[in-house]
Design a protein around this nucleic acid. Structure first.
Lengths: 234, 234
DNA sequence: TGCATTTTATTTGTCGACATAAATTCGGCG
DNA sequence: CGCCGAATTTATGTCGACAAATAAAATGCA
């Protein structure tokens, strides 16, 4: 799947190796290029990135801290599995975080925040028009992350980011099942949320964020319950 | 402060070193034995724990992932500072998490959860009676962590744990200002919460959790605003 | 042939050492 | 006397190698 020889050019600056590996692995995990459960071999990665195992391990430890890889003692680390039995807790949490962060964004956003949010939304619409699900999923995450940032509560932002990242993998599964054809309905909902934030209408933000979350959750629930039934058949 | 020669006995099992360092450092940070801003020297720790720098670094990376230490590139890591300008976001977040986790505990708890929660509360009362603020703070954290666990939403639990840990440092500062004399009022509030969970009364749990949080927040806010005023005077 | 046990092999956990970047000290110059 | 720059020092980032533990393979036995 992944090309063997990556050969990332020449000299890297001291300290940049870890971040490089971290970001690259993270992206491959979140796009499902590395599927859940796949073993992660340290020496393999060390060769691929042309560096020692030490920075590789540090990147893996950080990813493990975010719950993106699971490390079994004395055994290969693996890409974190998606626990479908806990999907409902995920939906519950992300719905609450959408509501809370959007509310706070309405209260605390500054002009420059809105610019950033609108820029993400423009990119989002472009990815939908281009039928590029991978980019769409990534930008959708950036959009809501920007809203959370505008809310200026780092604790909520941190949880929201974690949920959004986990959501990238779930959405990837979801859209793959449709051969990656994208509906564009979310685009309108995003516009409504932006306007509500700009108007500083806290209650409207709450309602729109909840509806936005409910809509996605409903679709994915439907999809996975279908999938569950098929699984049960064996 | 910290004894130089710790000399933790003899052989350790392969893989246990990291957890040992991680837990010990974590405890020292949360009890303020290591004050915010203090530099953390890797070789120093390596000598103290009688192991190489490698496991020390891994423990530090994990602690950095939880926001308990800050690592500056090519410079000493330091114990994470407490950002008092973001105290209000902390209060907001922990109030919400108290409410949400207690609500969920009312819905999803099982008999064994209640036993655990009650056991923590018993220990809590004991620490208050013994006027042991350090233990009291630690057990208070365990009490609310057990409630979060009973709510069975790992995302909420994770954020709650992070907030509770950060809260340990703040509470330590708070009680230090009173020469570590403890009021026992919280004990009764805890009992009320336990009863509401046992009765599966979601709305009552919400109200009691909010009041419990508000009460603590009010006191600490008062304390820190007093402190702020003094700071302004220079 | 099938199962248990030993042997091999692979991969992680840890170590000690070197390279490098920043902080500090020292020295020169204006 | 003070400031700027170079040398020194200190601590981190990275490396290659060894040891331990698990998985896989091979062997022996019933």
């Amino acid at each position: 799947m992944t090309e063997t020889a990556e050969d990332l050019g020449g000299e890297r600056k001291r300290g940049s190796g870890v971040r490089l590996v971290y970001e690259m692995l993270r992206d491959e995990i979140l796009t499902l290029a590395l599927p859940p459960g796949r073993p992660i071999d340290e020496v393999n990665l060390a060769e691929r990135f042309g560096m020692s195992r030490t920075p590789i391990r540090e990147a893996l430890v950080r990813l493990a801290g975010e719950g993106l890889v699971e490390t079994l003692p004395n055994r290969s680390a693996i890409v974190a599995n998606i626990d479908f039995t806990k999907l409902y807790t995920f939906f519950d949490a992300i719905t609450l975080m959408y509501r809370v962060t959007t509310r706070l964004a309405a209260e605390h956003h500054r002009p420059e925040d809105l610019e950033i949010i609108r820029a993400h939304q423009a990119r989002y619409a472009a990815t939908v028009a281009a039928q590029d699900p991978l980019a769409m999923i990534a930008v959708n995450r950036d959009f809501h992350a920007a809203i959370a940032e505008a809310g200026r509560n780092p604790y909520y932002t941190a949880l929201t980011l974690r949920l959004l990242d986990e959501g990238r993998r779930i959405l990837r599964l979801y859209y793959q099942s449709f051969n990656d054809r994208l509906p564009k309905e979310y685009s309108d909902e995003h516009e409504g949320i932006i306007n509500a934030i700009a108007a500083r209408d806290v209650e409207l933000c709450d309602r729109l964020a909840r509806e936005h979350a409910d809509q996605i959750v409903r679709q994915i629930k439907q999809f996975f319950s279908r999938d569950m039934r098929q699984d049960v058949k064996l």
